[in-house]
Structure formats: C-alpha cells, structure tokens
Design a protein around this nucleic acid. Structure first.
Lengths: 356, 356
DNA sequence: TATCGCGTAGAAAGCGCTTGCTACGTTCAT
DNA sequence: ATGAACGTAGCAAGCGCTTTCTACGCGATA
C-alpha cells in the first residue's frame, strides 16, 4: 500500500541504508548513486515516514510555537516571523532543514500551556518557542520550570520570546524580553509632559508578567512626578481585565465612574485602547480634546484608528524572527541568554494636552 | 536516561502490553491493575514516545490547520475555534482524545502550502484543515488534489473551511464554503439602494477564489441594477492587491485618480477598508459624507472604526469550530460534503446616501 | 464433575527508519 | 610489490511502542 524506504531501495538497486543517507545527506554517497536514488524517490512518490524516522533518530523536525491568543495579531506577527525563519529555508532541495513549525494556541490557560508542552515532549520536538507574558503563579512557574528542564534534557531547544527569563532555569537557551516597564514609563512620561495629572489605567489580566511590568512602568513615572498617591489611590485609578476590546470599553466606563475628572486613559494594549475609545465616544467625549488615550504594542491597525493612536511600538516581527533563528541554532544566544528588547514611544494624535 | 514503557511496566509489575492498554484505554484492564500502572506512570513521570507510538499504531494525534496569514485575525479566529474543538476535550483524564492541533502558516504561498501538506503527511497527521481562499491555478489545483487524495489514502481526514469544494476530489470529508458571492452582492445592493452609482472596488489578489467570488457578487449586483457597463469599465473601477492595509491605501488613491467622481468604495476585506479610509481622509474626504466605504468579514476592530464600518459578517468562529468537529469526526458531514455558510450584511456608519 | 465462556494478562512479532560497524575496491606512498 | 588510507555501500541491530494471538483462571452451565 504505502511506499517505504525499502521499496525505494529496491527500485534504485541499493540498500535501505543508502537511501536513508541520500535523504538525510549527512554521509558521503557517490553522485551517480544519489542520482539513482532520487529518481526512484520521485518515481515512487515516496514520502518519508516521520514517526519511524523520529523514533530511529530520537529527534523530530517539529518546532512548537506557543501563543496565548492566536486571534490576536500581537502573537500572530511574532509566530509568523518565527515560522518564516524555521520553515523557510528551502533551496537545498529536499535535504535537511525542513522543519515543521507549528503554532499552538493556549488561550492563556496555564493547563493548556502545560498540556501542549507535554504533547510537544511526546513528539520529541526539536525546539519550542514560548511567546507572550507568563502567569505569575508560583505553582505554575514551578511546573513550567520542571517541564522545560525535562524538555531540555530530551534535547529540545527552548526559547522565550516576549517573556521574561525563568529564574534559575538552565533549560532555556535564550529569552527575549520586551522592555515593557521602560515602555510603560515613557508612555506615561509623555502624558505627564503634556500636562496630564489624573490618569486612569486599564490594565491587563492580573498575575501576568506583561500586565505587571507595564503597570510598574506607569506607576514609576507617576511616582517620579510626585503623583500617584498612596496605594488606595493607585488602585482606584486602575482596572484590570482581559486583553480585549470589551475589557477596554467596560473598564473605561468604570474609571469614569470612579473619577469623572480623568484627562487621560492608558490602556494595557492597543485592542483595549480601541474599546476605551469606543466607550469615551459613547459618553460624548472627544479624543484627544476632552480626554487622551494611549495604547501599547503598535499593532498595524493602530495607526489607522481615528484619531491615530499614541502607543508604544514593540518590534514583534524582529523579535519573532530572532526567536526562530535562536530555536534553529542559526544565531548565537545573547550574553547570559537574556536580551532586553527596546520599546519605542509612538506619539500620535490620540494624546494632547488636557483642556485648560 | 529517558523513561520507557518497559520501565513503567517493570515498576508496576505488569507487561508492557498492559501498560500500553491502560494508556490507550481501548482494552479491558482490571481496575486494580490500571491503578497500579497509573501510579507507576506518575511516579516515573513517564511521557509516551509519540513517534514510537505513531509508528506502531500507524496513526498520530497531530491535526494540522493551514492558514494563509497567521497575523490576520480572519484566520486566527477560525484556527483558534478549530483548536478549541480539537485540543479542548480533556476531562477524560489522560485517555484518548488528546490531539495536538497545530497551525501552519503558508503565507499564501502555494509552494509552502504543498510543503506543509507533505510535512503533515510525513507525520501521518490524523486530520488536516485547510482554511481561506484557494489559488485558482490549474497546476496548483491538480497538485493539491493529488496531495489531498494521497493524504486521504493514508487515513488523514481532510476538511476545507472557508474554501470552496475541490471539484472531483473524494478526499475531502467536508467543505464549509462562505457565501462570498451572496455577501458581496448584498453589500453592493445596499450601496445601490442608498443611491450610489459610481462605485470603486478594491479587490484582493487575483486568482484567488475568495477574491473572485466577492467580486462576482459585486458585479452581479451592479449588472442587476443595469450598471457596471462593459468589461473595460468594470476593469477601470477595480484594482487588485493583497489583503492588507497598504493595498487599500494605494488602491484607493489609484481609483480616485481613475474616477474622481466615485461616491463609494467597496474593499476586499475590513483591513483593506481601513487602508482605504486612511487614504480618503488624507485626501480630505469625509466618510460617509463625501464618500462611503464598505469592508468584508466584520473583524472585531471593524465596529470600532470611525465611522463604524459597514461590512459583511462571516461567522468565522462558528465555522472554525465546526471544521474542528468535522476533523475529529465529532459531527456528521453536511449532505454532499458541502455546506454554504451565510454571510450577513452589517450596515453601519461608513455608508450613507451620496451627496446630492 | 466436565465443559464452555468470559475477563484479563503476557509473549512476541513487527511498524519503517537510522547508524555503528564491517567489507570491499581503489589509489597512494613506501 | 605491499600495505595503509580512503571513499562507498551493505548488514543488522535496534529505537519504543501496538496488537494479534495465546494462555490462564474462574464462575456458570449442563
């Protein structure tokens, strides 16, 4: 029924070993022999049996990319860039390099994250790239650390992209961490410079590194300006919610209720900011005339928002591509295995000085 | 080094066969024995060797989801929904159902589409879901048909989601096709009803089914209204380009150059529409006062555009979920294996009667 | 009591591939 | 002329699991 290596060998009048070596290209084979084998492969329309090959070689060509939300371009851009670096290099013909880069959607659930890691471990994945913020739960962190070191033991390369390093883990080859704290700080400094004093913050889900870092940046800027007040006051001007449009809408309404004198709102990311804008418009407020709004990430649609959204640009594509290269061993890891990736303020039209 | 089935068997004082049966749960095993085996599995932290298991069983638990652009929520939403149906059903403990749903990004390239299919074939994937429009190139269609029937022969379930049926192929279990033609027609009828007569069309990439169907719907509506003119005129009011923001921007400028009297622009999708809006604004035109704009897909951000975008809603999540169920064999295929999925007009604020 | 059948477990034969080792020419240096 | 060295190819032993077939023990049936 299905064509096997042996069939190809028979047709090319060589041994199975030779066919295997031609296909893997890591052993000298005479040009004429190789030629003959390749022809037989084509004629029989042979496709390697991946499981058999992985079993014998004790490695596979699977590379997993874990994302929190596949419908969010934030992850899509990184994953796409990584895949380009992994599945991209054809050219060598059928030999080598043909990895299967696949993305797995955890939906932000820690259990699913672990489940996918186990599934990838089952498949003896060549590499795993974890993207996006991590959950700050001690239990989960411990479980992840254990799982990742088990993966590393089995020869899987682990790369973190847009996620802070896992303390005390030597399983991770490299972590590319976005400077969310610095970005958040500069964004709020921008607002402060414009003259804002009462700033509301729509934060992401609690217990996420990304959420915390951005919020810390914001509060650091506020504190440096002698604002921000005590903890209770900080809490009053902060509302947490998921990274979606709806959360931005609802949280904005809530912030307005708590503090009608708000002159600016900083959102956890651009999608949330869009929801915030919608809420403000529905309240009859004009942006930025009555109130300023800022986002984070600089996703493609942000520049087309009306008014164009002030935000913080994260080099998602570059980071994803680099993670891909790191996973493939095509790039040297940064010193110490950790790289901080700069976040750039993009001041646009959704922020302006507060009304006098 | 690594723990194998035999290790577990030894520790549980049973034969490897029994361990296998406990893990796969398709053979009667006494409760006490199962208990013992499960404990050993836990104690040894055993993880099944996927390749070995796939080799022996001649199937794997991999399910591939092919998308054209992973950074586009259009695909992200479908893929996410499908993954929910595939990787989701835990609850049964570790037994059964634990598939590895992975998404593969073709970037719209036919070669990569084929490459991924081969890679999935290598892995003996349990199922493959192809999403999004297909390339209308005879050579590629033939190659795809051949590849898919080879996959089907090997036991892989093939499902098409948001992609028209492959004529003459019995390899495909089901195809869920969006009614792009009907949606396109209703959208243009809406514009016609408002009084528009000079309508520009920013189409998607040529030779794509989605592009063609939407355009056909548009032209059918125009023709039914006695408008549209000859082929040359139709061509003059149509500009093709990729499904991105940039294309919408550039094409809109081009259309305006060709026909300054345009009162409405229909875009290939919402992202393109956003680019069109940006171009119009940069030209000092107000939407919808000076010119109307419509999109397609009703992606999440469309309702937050300013003005809110008139578009055609596609039930992406539902379709993706259904495709996932179909792939898992958890839902009966539609009669004839083909289902047409309705597209609903969402008339919002970006369209209005033309200026008198 | 003898027989059958059922529930449960083990033995062992692969699944299709990779790779260490061996074997067989050649060519080169001695 | 002889042997070392090299370039190629084959042999065969697994890789870790699934599954068919066989075996065993026991309660039910006759």
């Amino acid at each position: 029924m299905t064509v096997t290596l042996a069939d190809v060998a028979a047709r090319a009048r060589v041994s199975p070993a030779t066919v295997s070596r031609v296909l893997n290209g890591n052993y000298p084979v005479a040009a004429s022999t190789r030629e003959r084998v390749l022809r037989a492969v084509d004629e029989l329309d042979y496709v390697l049996n991946g499981p058999a090959s992985s079993l014998a070689a004790a490695t596979s060509d699977l590379v997993g990319i874990l994302v929190n939300d596949i419908a969010d371009p934030f992850f899509g851009i990184m994953a796409g860039a990584a895949q380009t670096e992994i599945g991209g290099q054809e050219g060598t013909g059928r030999a080598g390099g043909e990895k299967l880069a696949v993305v797995c959607n955890t939906g932000g659930s820690p259990e699913r994250e672990l489940t996918y890691l186990t599934l990838l471990q089952r498949q003896r994945a060549a590499a795993v790239i974890l993207t996006g913020g991590a959950l700050e739960d001690p239990g989960h962190i411990a479980a992840m650390t254990a799982k990742l070191s088990r993966l590393a033991d089995a020869g899987t390369t682990v790369v973190l992209c847009g996620r802070p390093p896992l303390p005390g883990s030597d399983a991770v080859v490299a972590s590319l961490a976005f400077d969310n704290r610095g970005g958040g700080r500069r964004l709020t400094e921008h607002l402060l410079t414009l003259g804002h004093r009462r700033i509301g913050y729509v934060a992401g889900p609690v217990e996420r590194t990304t959420t915390r870092h951005r919020l810390e940046g914001h509060r650091a800027a506020m504190a440096a300006a002698g604002l921000g007040g005590d903890t209770a006051e900080q809490e009053r001007l902060t509302v947490h919610g998921p990274y979606d449009r709806r959360s931005g809408y609802d949280a904005t309404l809530e912030l307005l209720r708590r503090e009608p004198e708000l002159t600016a709102i900083v959102a956890a990311n651009d999608t949330v900011a869009l929801g915030a804008c919608a809420a403000l418009r529905d309240q009859g407020l004009r942006i930025p005339h009555d109130i300023s709004v800022a986002g984070f990430d600089d996703l493609p649609f942000s520049v087309d928002a009306v008014p164009a959204l002030t935000t913080v640009r994260l080099p998602l594509f570059e980071a994803g591509a680099r993670a891909g290269r790191l996973a493939m061993g095509n790039e040297a890891p940064p010193p110490g295995g950790i790289a901080s990736i700069a976040a750039e303020l993009m001041a646009r039209d959704s922020t302006a000085p507060p009304r006098a």
